[in-house]
Computed example of a mutant assay.
Amino acid sequence: MTLLACSGAWAGVQVNFEQPDKYTDVPFSTPDRDVVLNGLADHFQFLGKSLPPGQQLKIEVTDVDLAGREDVTRRGAFAIRVMDGRTDWPRMRLRYTLEQNGKVLASGNAYLSDMSYLQRIGRYSSNDSLRFEKQMIDDWFRNTFNIKPKGRSKPVVSLQQREVQGR
């Protein structure tokens, strides 16, 4: 049921992706999909470094819808994502549990989305393929755990994609 599990003892975060081949919008090819999922997991783990010592966050991602839409008419050597800011904002569904010493401090289901993703000043470089999703996750992490991200996670630049905004 879980395709990919990433965890880091130093980060206090364990991320699982439930049936990623059924997600709303992730790359079709397995290598590109793995790049996206690993990038998201790395970002959650990066944010987890700001949790108080001894806390463990478990996240189960149940759906991902990346910013923009892949333009299948232009598919070739590069995947092209068209971003118009209308109905193509990034979204994610997940379940989470925050524990300390085996005691549950917080848990729940979360629906993350950022309808104004193209109008915001982003923290992440335009070279980061997941910059809009990372900003959305930062907002959720700040609102849910009251922790402001310190710094930025490493950019995901290995996806071979070009983006076209506002066709």
Rank of each mutant, 00 (worst) to 15 (best):
A9P: 03
G151F: 08
F145I: 10
N101Q: 12
K103L: 12
D114V: 03
S116G: 08
F46L: 07
G108N: 04
T62Q: 06
N146A: 15
G102W: 04
F28E: 13
Q45F: 00
P27K: 03
K58E: 15
P155E: 07
T30L: 12
P52T: 06
L105H: 03
S29I: 05
V104M: 03
T62M: 04
Q55V: 02
A5Y: 10
P149Y: 03
A110I: 00
Q14N: 12
L130S: 00
W140Y: 15
K134G: 00
N101Y: 05
V36Q: 00
R123W: 08
R74G: 07
S125H: 09
N38H: 09
T62E: 01
N16A: 13
F145C: 09
F145K: 10
A79L: 10
L47E: 06
T24N: 09
T144V: 10
L40R: 00
R167L: 15
D42V: 00
R131M: 13
T97H: 02
E133F: 05
R86T: 13
A11W: 01
V72E: 14
D34Y: 09
G76N: 13
A67I: 08
A79R: 13
Q14C: 07
D114L: 11
D84S: 11
V157H: 02
R120W: 04
A67G: 07
R33C: 04
Y96F: 15
S129L: 04
R69L: 11
Y111M: 07
